[in-house]
């Protein structure tokens, strides 16, 4: 019956059938054809074998590898940020201006010990670093907290997120050679002598200020409560804005945090704190799925709310208790008009 098909075509058809990618006509064709069903069975066996879960990585390996990557990230970021400043994306922020800015409120880490460890780690890394890096580190810690709270609201993937959040600190490297090689390689690339020299020149004048700022930030962190009831997210320090969604209906959103111009997209992704946030194809970047109520209906009009990140200001917004949404403040038309 399949004489009209080459072996390759039969494989393709059977493979698409196994993956649920065959059209209804193709499904009918396969189910009516013994030879195609045999190929489906043969390739299905392969599919089963490949999809059998592999042994999970050891937690220790995960912790050490992530730590090595974070170290490399620190080194790389240390070098990259001045180049962003050169093109004028993030405006310089004085200490007075920085303090005068409204701060996003803190959110509840699921594991206080881990959060404290994380804070300690950031504190260690900040010592003696330039002002921008201190500010960035504190912002990341705060945004991480927001992300944790955001994920608490989501029912899906909850267990995965919890299990994946293994402490990265204090782990003894099991593959020291591999890790030290990796870190050394990353360090070599990121911190050439020339780059070190340039950076020293750029930040020489602000080093003292950075140290003082870093100490101030640490003191503030120590005195602030690290636990805020997630239910307070939509009231404490939030401002409410109404935007026009793409469907034409208004949607109320509340601002809890903002990102300065030049914020890398990945930091905003991280702040959103959950898998599965789809990203619009628009040049303006991010979009978020609206939350759904118990019946599965979207609780505000669907449609993308694009923003431009990387070069324009953007804000992280929490809608009710479920949704994180990014909206541009000044540019990039969030109103789909």
């Amino acid at each position: 019956m399949t004489n009209y098909l080459t072996p390759e075509e039969r494989d393709e058809l059977a493979s698409a059938y196994l993956d649920g990618e065959a059209s209804p006509d193709q499904v009918a064709q396969i189910e009516a054809d013994t030879e195609l069903r045999r190929v489906v069975s043969e390739l299905g066996r392969i599919q089963n074998a490949v999809s059998t879960p592999t042994p999970p990585p050891e937690e220790e390996l995960q912790a050490t590898q992530i730590e090595a990557a974070l170290s490399a990230f620190d080194q790389i970021h240390h070098q990259v940020q001045p180049s962003i400043a050169e093109v004028g994306a993030p405006p310089a922020v004085s200490r007075a201006e920085h303090r005068a800015r409204p701060r996003p409120h803190r959110t509840a880490p699921t594991n206080r010990a881990a959060a404290n460890q994380e804070r300690l780690r950031h504190s260690k890394r900040r010592s003696g670093l330039p002002t921008w890096l201190s500010v960035a580190a504190v912002s990341l810690a705060l945004l991480g907290g927001i992300a944790v709270a955001t994920t608490q609201f989501r029912s899906t993937n909850e267990s995965d997120v919890a299990s994946d959040r293994a402490p990265a600190e204090g782990a003894t490297p099991t593959s020291e050679e591999t890790l030290s090689d990796a870190v050394a390689e990353a360090t070599d690339e990121a911190m050439s002598d020339e780059a070190m020299s340039d950076e020293a020149e750029v930040f020489e004048s602000s080093a003292e200020d950075a140290m003082a700022d870093s100490v101030d930030e640490e003191a503030e962190l120590a005195t602030e409560s690290s636990i805020i009831d997630p239910a307070a997210l939509d009231t404490a320090n939030a401002t409410t804005t109404t935007i026009q969604a793409s469907s034409g209906e208004p949607a109320e959103i509340q601002k809890v945090a903002s990102f300065p111009a030049g914020t890398p997209a990945f930091e905003i992704h991280d702040a959103l704190g959950a898998d599965g946030f789809p990203v619009g194809e628009s040049l303006c970047g991010f979009a978020v799925v609206p939350p759904r109520d118990q019946s599965g209906a979207e609780t505000y009009p669907s449609g993308y709310f694009p923003v431009l990140v990387g070069t324009q200001p953007a804000e992280l917004l929490i809608y009710g208790q479920d949704i994180a949404l990014l909206v541009a403040t000044d540019t990039c038309d969030v109103l789909d008009s």
Binding site: A68, L70, A72, A186, G310
Partner: peptide, 13 residues
């Protein structure tokens, strides 16, 4: 992981 952290600044969302 290293490739990801190196490439993060190029990730445009």
């Amino acid at each position: 992981l290293l490739a990801i952290v190196r490439g993060l600044t190029r990730f445009d969302g």
